[in-house]
Design a protein around this nucleic acid. Sequence first.
DNA 1: AGTAACTGGATCTTTTTTATCTTAAATTTT
DNA 2: AAAATTTAAGATAAAAAAGATCCAGTTACT
Lengths: 141, 141
Amino acid sequence: MKINRATDYGVRLMVYLAACEGRVVPRAEIASAMEIPPEFLAKIAQHLAKAGLLEIRQGRAGGYRLKRPSQEITLLEVVEALEGEIALNLCVGHPESCRFSPTCKVHLVWEAATEGLRDLLGNIYLANLIEKKAKSDEEVG
Amino acid sequence: MKINRATDYGVRLMVYLAACEGRVVPRAEIASAMEIPPEFLAKIAQHLAKAGLLEIRQGRAGGYRLKRPSQEITLLEVVEALEGEIALNLCVGHPESCRFSPTCKVHLVWEAATEGLRDLLGNIYLANLIEKKAKSDEEVG
DNA sequence: AGTAACTGGATCTTTTTTATCTTAAATTTT
DNA sequence: AAAATTTAAGATAAAAAAGATCCAGTTACT
Ligand code: SF4
Ligand code: SF4
């Protein structure tokens, strides 16, 4: 009933990149700042890259960067890239996995709950999740 | 991000009992009707009994029975009896587990999502989940 | 007493999660 | 071109959780 550690790490990564505004950020920096085991972070980034959410630059000044603007990437996309499509029970999205599903009222509840959750996450964008720095920086200037 | 098999089994058990209207139902009957491994069902029932959701009758005509009316037991209670309090991420309910939680906006999202889910499940009662039989299909013909 | 039914703890297997290691490839700098 | 730096990709491994089963013991009906 919980997301994986990898998923949380992935979200941290994406939010961090969103805050970096298109800069190519080396893995070691992210790993250290977000407290993610570096090798594990590599795996997670690879998944997210395959899902088209971030871009990997290899070589000497390599690192990671968002592939799309942070205003256009939802939390749902990030989570589902790492967990697969969200489903709160086996039978959600796979009614054939349980022979009771055609008449099971609980099935409908799990489907509704899943949809509710996906809706919520689908309406939150990385841009909404960046920790704004102290106002003095931008507004008072 | 999914409930356990044990939790689904537990819900099946509770809904089945709700449909049995206070009768003491032997484990074997439930196991067979709901397709649950009997020994595993025993363990699940023991948990639910400790949580005060059902009553176990030992001895010769033993079995299980709801402890409270099905109109008063929510799905949330059943699920949380088996999974512990629902939390979609580690940091939900345990902000101290992550040093970012005080400023992390994602944290707030997971808390909101968790609350939404608990709300939904908390408003569904076992009585709502019983498959109503057609008028006289108990006796075929 | 005899039998049917569940308990409670231990055990066991499988799967999933989390993490790391290793060899290779890519890119920049020299 | 060579060297230095950084990630790729697949294999591996350790740890934890899930799923299931076993068995000696207890309870209650007849
Ligand atoms: S909720 Fe109903 S349909 Fe889904 S797995 Fe459980 S019993 Fe089957
Ligand atoms: S959501 Fe934020 S607070 Fe919660 S674990 Fe992830 S980083 Fe930490």
